[in-house]
Design a protein around this nucleic acid. Structure first.
Lengths: 266, 266
DNA sequence: CGACACCTTGAAGAGGTTCAAGAAATGTGG
DNA sequence: CCACATTTCTTGAACCTCTTCAAGGTGTCG
């Protein structure tokens, strides 16, 4: 776990694929608020639209909104009006109950949609907190519904996004209900790195944007257990860890841990 | 825990509200396949439709389907074509992984919608097993999408159903991630009895349709722990338990257990 | 540079699991 | 309808994983 820093220097940079412009100096001439010229379109919008549909879709994003690290996109109890597509940054969503319970329900990154929990009761039921400075596209839900009555592929897309969230949560239930600490952390790391890789980042290095406590809350473990489990993986040569920098040395070993030491078929 | 049997005799009968006809002799004259004269409509279909919309909605249910106890409505890998509304009966949904993990992701009863997991990849990702003889309305999803482009309140309704499922799963994550065995079982009992009560059954007596093992799987506990926790509740005078018959004697005590021994505000 | 948040590690303890045996209920076939 | 097989449930005892409590280290930011 000695000299990690140099190797991690590039972790924050995209290696390929879906590259997106830097945020600070938004050029109003080239970056107008429109999905049709957004590099993340393939992640949050349907593919195969014709020109007319593309024009309609462009009107779905009302404005963009910036959230500072630690700030909230929405809070439990807030009125629901819009879904949000993450352009840049990293979020956690969590439930905080009156009696002091706390549960991180997910971590969200660029291209992912937030706010679905608010639809059912017109109010949000969890908090969305930025874990790094972020920018989101605000999509009024009424507009989404209106458009998806006209654009069939958008309608289908919205349904898929919600279904995907349901299936993701099934996976979390499997994790929380049937895995031990090592298995949970291995599954967590593999999931994170896979999603980052799909966005052009490294398949083996990652920078954790959340604390041990937040990881623990998500995984149903105490922060000490998360820390100890990281240390165990390090001892076994599976990962290198330096604070929030993680390098996966043996992806296969992590997969074996998750799969009950069985090689997945094929 | 002595003489429970007599009191439980009526458990299977509806006390009031949404009463529905018995299944076996379906009279084709009175019970045509139509949501507009279904007693469960208020549970699975939007309210406040005009006559024209009601007529359209009636075409959403293709056929009904009966599932024997132990039978499957769908299985992991099955092609997704339809959503299902439960008319009668009781289901569990569960994930079974190749490496032998198993997780019950939910229990469903009359008026609830199943199959949402299949939308995202056109294939189901879990098994839906009937825990008692059941009858479901089969609603082809293409038809639902078509109609919800025309009937705004149906569109909104579909969105709410999916959002509700997402929020429900957040609650399960909270349960699995942050509660101890007693708290989990108390929350489980309160949730079940509340849903049954909303359907006209008793607010304090219930007949469990699932085994201790299935409860345990859902709650992330072993069946022995479920059994022991039931026994503990019995010792404390909170419930009476005789096999699958449960009578809640002290709802408040269960609520206190769930709420970390804090009375909920107001 | 000091205050603060975050992380690591050790030791003791609690909660839940595992293994095992027996009891109770349920289903089946004659 | 009864006898038997099977499933389900309960309970005890030993064990193990994770938590709790505590202390010290590391990194960060004004």
């Amino acid at each position: 776990m000695s000299e990690l820093t140099p190797a991690f220097a590039g972790t924050g940079k995209r290696a390929s694929a879906v590259s997106d412009e830097k945020i600070p100096p938004i050029n109003p001439l080239t970056v107008k608020i429109a999905c049709s010229n957004c590099n993340l379109r393939e992640l949050c919008m349907p593919l195969g639209l014709n020109a007319e549909e593309l024009n309609k879709i462009d009107t779905v994003v009302e404005i963009r909104r910036r959230i500072k690290r630690g700030g909230r996109l929405y809070s439990n109890g807030d009125r629901f009006t819009s879904l949000f597509a993450i352009r840049t940054g990293f979020f956690k969503t969590c439930i905080n109950t009156e009696d002091g319970r706390n549960q991180v329900t997910g971590f969200q990154m660029a291209g992912e949609i937030m706010g679905l929990d608010g639809i059912v009761n017109d109010h949000h039921t969890c908090d969305a907190v930025a874990l790094e400075d972020a920018e989101v596209c605000v999509m009024p839900f009424e507009r989404i519904e209106e458009l998806s009555r006209e654009v069939v592929s958008l309608q289908r897309h919205v349904h898929k996004i919600m279904s995907r969230e349901i299936v993701r949560e099934h996976g979390v239930m499997l994790l929380l209900g049937s895995m031990r600490a090592e298995e949970r952390l291995a599954a967590f790391l593999l999931n994170l790195v896979q999603r980052l890789h799909a966005r052009g980042f490294s398949a083996s290095e990652l920078l954790l944007r959340m604390t041990r406590e937040e990881i623990g809350s998500y995984l149903g473990l105490k922060l000490e257990t998360v820390s100890r489990t990281f240390s165990k993986f390090v001892e076994e040569g599976i990962v290198e860890v330096k604070q929030r920098h993680v390098r996966i040395l043996d992806t296969q070993a992590l997969k074996l841990i998750v799969n009950n030491n069985q090689l997945p078929c094929q």
